[in-house]
Simulated assay, not measured.
Amino acid sequence: MSESSNGSTELGYEEARDQLVAVVRELEAGGLSLEQSLALWEKGETLAKLCERHLDGARERIEAALASVEEDAEEDAQ
């Protein structure tokens, strides 16, 4: 787990993904009350957004690394 900017502990991508999978399985299994289903749905939405943030961060890091490599290649070509 990593620490977020507000000081609270945030799940890593793999942990959030695994919990999201568990939420989906539980919802698909059925047999829950409406309140239980809604609570799980909300938890799933939160986990999905967290996964999205992790993926966006990874994408930004990859794009920055690629841009750096391209800049180095251009400098070497000159």
Rank of each mutant, 00 (worst) to 15 (best):
34 L>T: 11
77 A>L: 09
30 G>C: 00
6 N>M: 08
15 E>Y: 06
31 G>C: 01
38 L>M: 13
51 C>Q: 05
56 D>N: 04
77 A>G: 06
15 E>D: 12
43 K>W: 06
45 E>Q: 14
24 V>E: 11
21 V>C: 02
78 Q>K: 10
46 T>W: 07
41 W>E: 14
22 A>S: 03
51 C>T: 14
3 E>Y: 13
55 L>F: 02
10 E>C: 01
59 R>P: 04
35 E>T: 14
3 E>Q: 15
31 G>F: 05
74 E>T: 08
17 R>P: 07
2 S>L: 14
25 R>P: 00
49 K>M: 02
47 L>W: 02
76 D>Q: 13
14 E>Y: 02
8 S>T: 10
68 S>M: 15
53 R>G: 05
67 A>D: 14
29 A>W: 01
44 G>M: 07
58 A>V: 08
39 A>P: 08
69 V>I: 14
66 L>G: 04
38 L>S: 14
78 Q>W: 02
26 E>K: 15
78 Q>M: 08
71 E>I: 11
20 L>R: 10
8 S>I: 12
28 E>N: 10
43 K>V: 09
12 G>R: 08
12 G>T: 13
31 G>N: 03
68 S>P: 12
58 A>E: 14
73 A>W: 13
51 C>V: 15
1 M>Q: 13
60 E>C: 07
42 E>D: 14
77 A>T: 08
54 H>W: 11
34 L>K: 12
17 R>K: 07
14 E>L: 00
29 A>C: 00
45 E>T: 10
56 D>Y: 00
17 R>Q: 14
66 L>F: 08
5 S>V: 11
61 R>A: 04
56 D>M: 03
71 E>M: 11
25 R>F: 05
52 E>H: 07
75 E>W: 07
2 S>M: 06
69 V>Y: 03
18 D>G: 07
10 E>T: 07
75 E>G: 11
23 V>D: 04
17 R>L: 15
78 Q>N: 14
72 D>C: 14
77 A>C: 07
74 E>P: 09
